[in-house]
Nucleic acid binder design. Structure first.
Lengths: 342, 342
DNA sequence: GGACAATTTGGTAGCGCTACCATTTTCCGC
DNA sequence: GCGGAAAATGGTAGCGCTACCAAATTGTCC
């Protein structure tokens, strides 16, 4: 066995190796790397040469310890496989890829308790910013966010009482708009089919209910929900249930596009005509909605843009200029398609 | 302005605060937290009480710096929104949620250069393990992996020459199996439709070609590919192109399920009968495949399990017992459905 | 040309934790 | 009851970096 190197770290070049080679003080190297404009042209060149020659890469752990601030964005989403959050996360990643910030992604599994645990873990790293999905944090989580000592952006939804900043849209309005569209199209026995029923789904349901009540069409038997995670096959099953419960059903507003697709397939399978016999509206407007036959009406949401905007706001806050607009509503768009064109 | 606290870190309790309160040495607290069995029952209790009372949370950055090892799994995937990788990542997250390990997720965007850059960044943190998608790393990436000084698991594919460990399956065999199934079902003008054409897609194509040549059916005009990222709408367009090129086409093996779904919808739209006029096979077997009408034959792959297995192997290696089986082939399964039931 | 400010560079002292060793205490077996 | 090993505890010295302040150098204005 070879005796371990005297240096515990394992012999990677350190900042003082670079400093020695460049003939400057260690702190100057540190500065040249972080605030190049504060170091003279000449030293900067020498230092860069030494860095390249030694293959020096700063140790983020040491950096974080010394500066009491890690170059990490903490991101908390309820699901990794749900395309909706995947798009938000992609927006976040793309916006951060050219920055020095790393991303710490946490999956809360739609659990408030898990969110608290992850917030605790993330907080212990002193992140540069925190991005969390939703606005329904537990009191404990909310406190953790308030005391995080960094910019916080709540995404996906807007609401009256941000911890710090918010980017999203109103799910209630989205649900209402979708339902009103069906009513205008002439449907009247309009069902709601919702899986998972997380807070955002609940608010879409509330929007549905508001629209239905305003039109005098609401009937609790039209609503079919389950806490089970959403999927295309679940959409099919729930549609069957809804139809068994209310055979006169003539349209469905679906919680999301997966459910809507399941409904469409079941209609095909049982030769129910869409949009003639049944109208279908989805939510989120995944790519497949416009390709489906018939194409499916849906509420287009700007997921990728939400991720990008959240990062932009956090970055601005880190840089010191808090945006005057702390709540950004990116809205949504009703995409009218064949599935509701009676 | 209030004078900043004397302590730079911002006043969070440290290990020596705990030590003082519990009336022990700092190192004993450290041990009680990391190797409780090496500390007496009594001190352990005292220390735990002090930890709870102060709300002490260890600083992972300080820990990483002192021990030259961060409790981080680096995970590199080519896409965050592709459901296939999302499932793998979910398996990884679920397997690691009860461990002290954090996850650093990187998105390479299918770029070798980006992979190199991220490997460099990840490596600078001294991760506990590295999980990377694919087996086609650039020479630079491969060197970085070999020198990472931690267990490395390559996932999604198997191949002859692992950096360290591997979990996946043979995409070539998958492509061959899918194609052979179509041949057995009586199709003969079988097209291949592939988007993105990353290395895994290339190997599926190679499997297709092998099967077609073995049956004396291969014709280069049957192959339609594009480097454009895959989507349902792209599947529809490519199917149109393929049909325009070869009007006698009687089946398609699709690169993945999104493409297959696009093909199915286009068949509906143009009243092409499935499986009578056109047979369809997908790849990955997303949930929607069995719900589609007609249901779509696909190659079921075990994505979630790949993630779990990769973590299990890495964890074992960290614990010191390298598994005797360094290459794990989880295989795949042909799911025969209506879309090929002539 | 001298007083003063602005710019550039460097030294010191930690950040919070653990590796490494030293020391103390406990437990054996005979 | 005693030597020696094992178990339990502690002290010291960093890990690699940056905040904070001090010093040196340059520029500017009258």
């Amino acid at each position: 066995m070879i005796k371990p190197r005297s240096r515990r770290g394992g012999g990677r070049p350190t900042i003082s190796d670079v400093a020695r080679k460049a003939g400057v003080g260690a702190i100057t190297v540190s500065r040249a790397l972080r605030e190049p404009e504060r170091v003279s042209e000449e030293l900067r060149r020498q230092i860069q040469a030494a860095v390249d020659e030694l293959g020096y890469v700063p140790d983020p752990n040491a950096r974080a310890l010394a500066s009491a601030r890690a170059e990490v964005f903490g991101v908390l989403v309820p699901s990794l496989t749900n395309n909706v959050f995947a798009e938000v996360v992609r927006g976040i990643y793309d916006s951060l890829s050219d920055s020095p910030f790393r991303i710490q992604l946490g999956n809360t599994h739609y659990s408030g308790l898990e969110e608290e645990r992850l917030l605790q873990v993330f907080g212990s790293q002193r992140p540069a910013a925190l991005i969390v999905a939703g606005i329904d944090q537990t009191p404990v989580s909310r406190k953790l966010l308030e005391n995080a000592g960094c910019p916080v952006v709540q995404v996906m939804e807007t609401g009256p009482d941000p911890v710090d900043m918010m980017v999203g849209f109103s799910h209630l309005d989205g649900g209402r708009t979708a339902t009103e569209h069906l009513i205008e199209a002439g449907y009247c026995r309009i069902g709601f089919i919702g899986a998972r029923m997380d807070p955002r789904s609940q608010r879409r349901l509330a929007g549905y209910r508001a629209a239905m009540e305003a039109a005098g069409l609401f009937d609790p038997r039209l609503v079919t929900t389950t806490p089970v995670p959403s999927s295309v096959s679940l959409g099919r099953e729930m549609f069957r249930d809804a139809l068994a419960k209310v055979p006169t059903l003539d349209a469905v507003f679906c919680n999301n596009d997966d459910i809507a697709l399941g409904v469409l397939f079941e209609c095909h399978r049982t030769s129910i005509l869409v949009p003639k016999t049944i109208g279908i509206v989805g939510f989120n407007d995944l790519d497949m909605m416009q390709v489906a036959f018939p194409s499916i009406t849906s509420i287009r949401t700007h997921r990728y843009e939400i991720g990008r905007r959240a990062v932009a706001m956090a970055l601005a806050a880190i840089a010191g200029d808090r945006p005057e607009q702390r709540i950004v509503d990116l809205g949504f768009e009703l995409k009218r398609r064949e599935s509701t064109a009676r």
